[in-house]
């Protein structure tokens, strides 16, 4: 009971943090549209007029049905895809290509299979010119942090999906990006592994509060992890609503699942997405 009465205060505090919209944003997406050539004359509008600002240190999820362009939006911020219209900025600078200030983590892991776990995690640091001994020491600490101590000399082929994604997260964290870009990182994992990785990701995030842009199609995952959930409509992808998640941190899954506010967020957001589906049916 006491815990419940404490919550509004903590909630208010986090609300204050995520409410600092006046502070210089880490990511600014301004009037971004993305059109893909489908075949010859046809083209497909994947994203339509997206405006989004992500504050430094915020955990923001982009949620929407498959094919709503949410991954494309992430790739635009990553600099892997250039928008047809509009600009994306990081720390006020227009994004023209990939860079070590924005570290991606993909659903497909995309590890380097010819490198060991240690080799993968060290790769970015070595590329940045960090000396071998120093890069190795840092990487070993990170590998321990993601719970893979003892697996340093294993090849990706020898690891399970969950372990591979832990390596991928460590590999990206290693070169200290200002923003983590996570593209359905737990989408290929079984429910149990998924839950464990969500918890671990939150623990890591709560330590250094990196800005995270997190694409998912799981409502629970988005609410559990985020400060803000950006709900998108089915194609063409538009921002339907941005929901502030005023839940106290550090979040504990067991407590949260029983929390009426958490449940309400989940139900409300699910309803928002269902409305989006009706939009498509109506011409």
């Amino acid at each position: 009971m006491q815990v419940v009465s404490l919550r509004p205060e903590i909630g208010a505090e986090t609300g204050k943090v995520s409410g600092q919209t006046r502070a210089p944003a880490m990511i600014d997406i301004e009037s971004v549209s993305q059109r893909f050539e489908v075949s010859g004359r046809k083209s497909h509008l994947a994203l339509s007029d997206i405006n989004l600002s992500v504050a430094d240190g915020a955990f923001v999820s982009i949620l929407g049905p498959s094919g709503c362009g949410k991954s494309t939006l992430l790739y635009i911020v990553g600099g892997f895809v250039s928008p047809t219209e509009g600009v994306a900025k990081v720390k006020g600078n227009v994004i023209t290509g990939p860079g070590p200030d924005r570290g991606p983590v993909f659903q497909e892991f995309a590890l380097f299979p010819w490198k060991t776990v240690l080799g993968n995690v060290m790769y970015g640091l070595r590329q940045q010119g960090v000396k071998r001994a120093e890069a190795e020491a840092q990487s070993r600490r990170l590998i321990e942090m993601v719970g893979l101590k003892g697996y340093e000399n294993f090849y990706p082929k020898e690891l399970s999906g969950g372990m591979k994604q832990r390596v991928a997260i460590a590999r990206t964290l290693a070169y200290h990006p200002s923003v983590l870009l996570m593209d359905e990182p737990f989408g290929a994992l079984d429910a149990h592994t998924r839950t464990r990785l969500q918890n671990d990701l939150l623990n890591i995030w709560e330590r250094d509060r990196k800005t995270v842009l997190f694409v998912t199609h799981s409502v629970d995952e988005a609410v559990f992890l985020s400060d803000k959930v950006v709900v998108m409509t089915r194609s063409p992808g538009r921002i339907k609503e941005i929901v502030d998640i005023d839940l106290p941190r550090p979040r504990r899954r067991a407590e949260l699942l029983l929390d009426a506010r958490y449940q309400k967020y989940v139900v409300d957001i699910e309803r928002l997405i269902d409305d989006g589906r009706d939009d498509v049916v109506q011409p």
């Binding site: 990553g78 600099g79 892997f80 290509g97 990939p98 860079g99 070590p100 924005r102 570290g103 991606p104 993909f106 497909e108 995309a110 590890l111 380097f112 299979p113 010819w114 790769y123 970015g124 590329q127 940045q128 590999r171 990206t172 070169y175 990006p177």
Partner: peptide, 24 residues
């Protein structure tokens, strides 16, 4: 996405050819 991961680490197109495409 392996190439994208390399690009994010700062590998140039030529480096990606030698250090990602070739070993992969």
């Amino acid at each position: 996405k392996m190439l994208w991961s390399g690009a994010a680490m700062g590998l140039s197109a030529v480096q990606r050819m030698f250090r990602i495409v070739l070993p992969a």
